Simulated assay, not measured.
Amino acid sequence: MEIAKRFNGEIICADSRTIYKYMNIGTAKPTNKEQSGVRHYGLDLINPDKAYSAAQFKEMALKAIDDITNRGKLPIMVGGTGLYIDGVLFDYQFLPLSDPGERKRLNNLSVEQLQAEIIEKELLMPANSQNPRHLTRAIETNGAIPKKGKPRPNTCVIGIQTDLQILKDRITKRMEEMIKQGFIKEVTDLSKQYGWDAQGLQAPGYKAFRDFVEGKKTLDEAKAQFVRNDYLLAKRQRTWFKRNKSIQWVNNKAEAVDIITTHLNK
């Protein structure tokens, strides 16, 4: 946020959870005050029970980049959903969406059933074999993957390195703050309105509190599950981005400012 203000920028949120309406606390969505200070794109796009693809994100993000640039501002894409970011950075040519009937059938299958269907069809198992969205897409595309293009020109890509223990401590602190802000009520209300199988509620933090809301786990157990889920997600994101050789890794904001300044002065 500070960097956006410093460089007259606007933010494109590349996060597969903040796209959902009403999921504000559990996704650490920017507050209304923060959004009034810096314009954000990619927030509150769909209801929690709807699907949204990386191809749709790419289309939205490219329009936002053109809009921001045409107004003389700096587009800044921020987030942790690797395919969203890479889809824009490397101009992925995404495969077409599946038949709605087939998507509905697959959405009703468990992770184990999806994995079994992939094995039966002799398809390549996705890297994240526990993610139903990844498994579903593998079946829909018959194992085909999007075509990756050349890196986007005139683009500065920065990643922040964080010690894993510090990262875990931050997740724990953030989770406690979310609970104070009303996260448990948010989870409860969303589950009642949209059901636990809703796309949005598959987010690690929301899934961690399902058993607590249903009276099957204690609050401490749910908290521990939240931290564990979020930490594992962060590690997977870290692994994904480490493969991108275009990323310049920094340890703090000052280093990021120096890199951005150098890039803009070229």
Rank of each mutant, 00 (worst) to 15 (best):
S53H: 01
V157C: 12
E140R: 01
E59N: 13
V250P: 00
L74V: 01
I171Y: 05
N131S: 14
A51M: 08
L109I: 05
N265L: 02
K192I: 09
A28L: 05
R152G: 06
G101D: 13
R152H: 10
L43G: 11
K245V: 11
D211Y: 03
D220E: 15
P30W: 04
E140P: 06
G215K: 00
R238F: 02
T69N: 11
A198H: 05
L167H: 15
D91R: 08
F241E: 12
Y22N: 14
L62M: 14
I25A: 00
L124M: 08
K21S: 13
L114I: 12
I68S: 12
A4G: 12
I25M: 04
R6Q: 15
P75W: 05
Y20H: 09
K150L: 12
A203R: 02
F183Y: 15
V111G: 07
Q202C: 01
D44I: 01
Y206G: 09
V187F: 01
A4F: 06
A54Y: 01
T69I: 05
V157R: 11
T136E: 15
M178W: 11
R133N: 08
Y194Q: 09
F241K: 01
A208P: 08
F57L: 09
K148T: 10
S191T: 12
K63H: 11
F90L: 04
L164I: 12
